[in-house]
Amino acid sequence: MPLNVEIVTAEQVIYSEEGVDQVVAPGSDGEFTVLPQHAEFITTLQPGELRITKGGAEDAMVITGGFLEVRDDRIVVLADAAERVEEIDIARAEEARRRAEEALLEQRELADLAATQASLQRALIRLRIAEKRGRRGRARPPRV
């Protein structure tokens, strides 16, 4: 029995597909793979790449943390933010990284430090994944 996958953020449902073969996700204890018949499972996620394989094709998403729940071959990802790798705007990610780095240099308020570090980390992950994809060849257009 194939998997049913849903990726939701507080703002919208990003991804919802049935018949998925496997999901690879960045758990807080390291990357893990979910196949059908997986045990009931809840984990926290760390920022990274989430890969969904369906019928030989692979979809990749960047998530910036959240939770993943597996139950009865249903996977629900509660992501803080998620976007498809193909949709990452490299120029924008680069800009975000630059801004975050600048902010870090100037930052004196401790309260904002954590937020800035987090946004820098997010920007770096986006860039790393986008570049990795870029080397592998032309990114597929997002399936609608």
Binding site: D29, A39, F41, I42, T43, T44, L78
Partner: peptide
């Protein structure tokens, strides 16, 4: 009630979940 496996553990999941 479902007997979930929690990773890293119950408390950490709860600690992440509550602020959200």
């Amino acid at each position: 009630a479902i007997d979930y496996i929690y990773e890293p553990d119950r408390e950490s999941v709860l600690a992440e979940l509550l602020p959200r």
